[in-house]
Design a protein around this nucleic acid. Structure first.
Length: 869
RNA sequence: GGGCGCGUAGCUCAGCGGUAGAGCUCUCGCCUUACAAGCGAGCGGUCGCAGGUUCGAACCCUGCCGCGCCCA
């Protein structure tokens, strides 16, 4: 038995057995986490839910945390927000479908495995069944020292490490008190998730919503993978404008460029159609310096007259504008940038071998240096390069500027190239209830700014492969136009080890044989299916029909453009609906400098430490103080306040139950409550219940907590102080107080239960059966409606005035008052009279006089003589 | 450059047309039989600035200034 729990022998007289002598918040997590698990308090009753009407179900599309990462206080806050809502909905009697997922898919896991084991994936290597990871991982930090191993071995390590990580995460989440149904956990890399992702992809493909295309693509040269628009970020980088002369019959035409090394890739010059300076040149041609290639001068609205000389070279491809110009003006392609970010060995057609050979194989940096030398020698560089800083596109996880490389990639349509689809997706956004409301602008903003379809293929290893092979023709070239798709019953497949029907493994990579599609899906392409994966689209259609579209998608605001949007796209195509009715957007926890807390910045606070020092309830209390969508600073002083509230709930519970409230029959309590102040207090509580309920319905858990808490402190400090001596007695007036205390405790424990699950459960367990978390959310109907709350406020004001007199006289609150004269308005006089006896007891007043008067309530106090110290 | 949000007490934030609020901090008290990891009392603000609407503006409107985030 827990030593903190008092046995009947040492329990205080009149206190229920099981109530500890000295309640403590410490140790409650261990006790209740174990009990909730063994009693399956948060289990989802599938059979009952299937019988229930849809509105009796509440389903949550929990964000699967990145298993390879580590959790910080920010995660604890946002997951707590969701849990508060889940607990509330459960208490409202709903079947709460609240699974947990792990995102163990993608680049972060790859990197973690590389660093943890000191290995790297080399897809060319064969599988080694006896492979054991090196024990001494720390020694192998540098890229060169990493041990190469096959893709299958690498993926096995990914699976292994993420499983360990996930076990740790689960332990932490349980300690945080998440009321997740832990029998329902999914992994984004699991067989069923892979099957879902592949099946959904094939559906998209069959309906024409997915397609492959050879096209210029933003390319990270470090990771050697394509990246999507959503993964871009602009960074300010130094650069220089080079003023370069193109040659025409009428003399030189000067352009200014930050990328002179792309000169051999130039296919045209472009100026704005309204730019009078260049009107005469439109439709004519000029010749490039050094290479002497003839290129047209064209007009396009995207050219910026006030940038540089107002005329620019179009290269294939220097930036996204080049891609637009190339596409819209139907220009030729002269690609010179390779997958490794170096200049290709051979010049594009029409470009002379010399001086191209001076650049071939060079990095962009050295190529630029060399071409500047050449231009200077030929006299085509005018003046010195002008240093500037300008925004350059980067992969958000990358360290080198992106290049644009023409590759074959898979895309899903997202409205970036289709106005009708874009409008339909914006309309979907309007069907979603956003919390807070203004977050929908982020969505609209993003969808309206899309400039291409969603690129979903990545040239990586640990992810869901495309379930596709290609036949190889007689010369060994893949026939991309006729992809071989995996049959539905075979999913999930790994085309790099599975063989398509009609072929044998020894035909892999041979002319006349086949090859696998080498790519894996982008992490968002798989996580965009979290509602389908979590709800059993692929595994439990009956359940899926019941819980989808889901009720809530909780997430942070930084991934509205990625996770949220892509989820909407997939549901729109597959189901013709939104994926959920509500999107609840939590803010960040920021450090004292208002910087987002993140592990990479080194300013993250480890949650376990905070949870241990202040207790889970204290941390959850602080989390609940951060309103939906609002960033909130991490401040340890606030945790202490939460801890104090948790302690207070334990203490008031113990006290109230000890006063006799523990033996009150709650079902008939209302009939025993006769004293005006008791009825007034409960009627005030009824209003609090209504307000808290309305706030919770609007997902405003902060407001719900605030009203409950304000009431609670005044309940403890004023009401309980006023009635406690009466409650000690054994007459009808005592019974009234005891019944009121019991009702108030029951209601308040339930109001606090979603935010403070541990202490409320502890106190509940002292006198009730079952879990408070399965009890009904309180309703105003449980409480007397006709009491006058003003009785409590007037009595509290009078008591406060008496306290002030004692405090001013530097006396103990126990000091006797000889006379107290309350001056109150005519309306208030009967109210004060109604609490006369309680007031006299609480204030230790020998003679209380109540007189009518004007203005605010006033109490004139004469303290009794103090005995000489 | 566009969008969104935010500027209220030293700090964190409520309030969003009717006499400026809470918690923390700070100060001064109090062994008070639920709680000293507690309790009581107090100090503290021209509500970013400037106009406007109104009998009345922290709140509504306009324009600035500052901060943050998202997108170009």
């Amino acid at each position: 038995m827990d030593p903190r729990i008092a046995t009947p022998d040492n329990a205080a007289p009149g206190v229920l057995s099981g109530v500890p002598d000295k309640p403590s918040v410490d140790g409650l997590e261990e006790k209740w986490v174990a009990r909730w698990a063994s009693e399956d308090t948060y289990g989802f009753d599938r059979d009952a839910a299937l019988q229930a009407p849809r509105e009796q179900i509440y389903s949550i599309d929990t964000p699967p945390p990145t298993a390879s990462g580590s959790l910080h206080v920010g995660h604890v806050f946002s997951y707590t927000h969701t849990d508060i809502v889940a607990r509330y909905q459960r208490m409202r009697g709903k079947h709460v479908y609240y699974p947990m997922g792990w995102d163990d898919n993608g680049l972060p896991t790859e990197r973690r495995v590389q660093n943890y084991y000191g290995v790297r994936c080399d897809p060319a290597l064969p599988y080694d069944a006896s492979f054991e990871p090196p024990g001494d991982a720390a020694a192998a930090k540098s890229d060169r020292a990493q041990l190469p191993l096959s893709r299958r071995n690498f993926v096995e390590l990914c699976m292994q490490l993420t499983e360990e990580d996930e076990a740790e995460f689960e332990k932490l989440w349980r300690r945080v008190g998440l009321s997740v149904d832990w029998s329902n956990v999914y992994r984004t890399i699991s067989e069923s998730s892979r099957a879902t992702a592949q099946r959904m992809f094939l559906q998209n493909l069959a309906r024409g919503e997915a397609y492959a295309q050879e096209a210029p693509t933003l390319w990270d040269v470090t990771f050697r993978t394509a990246v999507a628009q959503a993964e871009l970020e602009d960074r300010e980088r130094p650069g220089a404008y080079h003023r370069i002369a193109f040659h025409s019959a009428d003399g030189p035409v000067f352009i200014e460029t930050t990328r002179p090394e792309l000169l051999p890739a130039c296919v045209a010059l472009v100026a704005h159609p309204g730019d009078e300076r260049y009107q005469p040149l439109f439709g004519k041609t000029v010749r490039t310096p050094l290479f002497d290639v003839e290129v047209p001068v064209v007009a396009h609205r995207l050219a910026e007259p006030d940038k540089g000389s107002g005329i620019a070279m179009i290269c294939t491809f220097g930036d996204l504008n080049d891609v637009t110009w190339w596409r819209e003006l139907q220009l030729p392609t002269r690609a010179i940038v390779g997958w490794d970010g170096r200049i290709l060995a051979d010049p594009p057609p029409g470009v002379p071998a010399h001086p191209y050979d001076e650049l071939a194989g060079k990095t962009m940096f050295s190529a630029q240096a060399r071409i500047v030398e050449l231009l200077r020698e030929s006299g085509d560089l005018e003046g010195e390069p002008k240093q500037i800083t300008h925004p350059v596109k980067f992969f958000e996880k990358g360290e080198r500027p992106l290049e644009i490389v023409t590759t074959r990639q898979w895309y899903i349509r997202n409205g970036g190239r289709d106005a009708d689809l874009r409008d339909a997706l914006i309309a979907r956004g309007r069907e979603i209830q956003w919390v807070p409301e203004h977050m929908r602008h982020r969505y609209d903003n993003w969808v309206e700014g899309l400039n291409g379809d969603w690129l979903i293929s990545r040239q990586r290893f640990f992810g869901v492969p495309f379930p596709v092979w290609y036949r190889l023709d007689e010369s060994g070239e893949p026939v991309h136009d006729e992809p071989i798709l995996a049959p539905d019953e075979a999913l999930p497949v790994d085309p790099s080890s599975d063989v398509p029907e009609g072929f044998t493994e020894d035909q892999r990579g041979k002319p006349g044989g086949f090859m696998a599609d080498p790519d894996v899906m982008d992490t968002w392409a798989t996580s965009s299916l979290s509602p389908q994966v979590a709800s059993g689209w692929d595994t439990d259609p009956e359940l899926f029909a019941k819980v989808f579209p889901m009720d809530q998608r909780p997430q942070a605001h930084d991934i509205i453009r990625t996770w949220l949007f892509s989820t909407v796209v997939r549901a729109h195509f597959e189901h013709g609906t939104v994926p959920w009715s509500h999107a609840t957007i939590s803010g960040f926890v920021v450090d004292p400098d208002r910087k987002k807390m993140s592990k990479s910045k080194g300013n993250a606070t480890t949650p376990i430490d905070v949870l241990e020092r202040y207790g889970t309830d204290a941390v959850r209390w602080r989390a609940a103080g951060a309103r939906p969508g609002a960033d909130s600073p991490f401040d340890e002083a606030q945790m202490k306040v939460g801890r104090r509230l948790a302690m207070k709930i334990l203490n008031i519970g113990k006290f109230v139950l000890g006063l006799g409230a523990g033996s009150v029959d709650l079902s008939s309590a209302a009939t025993q409550i006769t004293e005006p102040i008791d009825r007034g207090m409960l009627t005030a509580l009824a209003a609090v219940v209504d307000e808290a309920t309305a706030a919770m319905e609007a997902y405003n858990y902060t407001r719900a907590l605030e009203v409950a808490e304000t009431f609670f402190w005044s309940f403890c400090d004023d009401y309980v102080e006023l009635v406690k001596s009466r409650a000690y007695r054994s007459d009808d007036a005592a019974a009234s107080a005891q019944a009121a205390l019991a009702l108030a405790l029951s209601v308040q424990l339930r109001l606090f239960a979603p935010v403070l699950p541990f202490v409320t459960e502890e106190v509940w367990s002292w006198w009730q059966t079952g879990s408070v978390h399965r009890a009904a959310w309180p309703s105003a109907g449980e409480l007397p409606a006709e009491g006058d709350p003003a009785v409590v406020t007037v009595a509290a004001a009078a008591l406060s005035a008496v306290r002030k007199a004692k405090s001013d006289a530097k006396q103990s609150m126990r000091a006797d008052v000889e006379t107290a004269t309350v001056t109150a308005t005519a309306d208030q006089v009967p109210l004060v009279e109604a609490v006369r006896s309680d007031l006299v007891d609480a204030g230790r007043i020998q003679l209380l006089t109540i007189v009518p008067g004007e203005g605010d309530l006033r109490v004139d106090v004469v303290l009794a003589e103090t005995p000489e110290a």
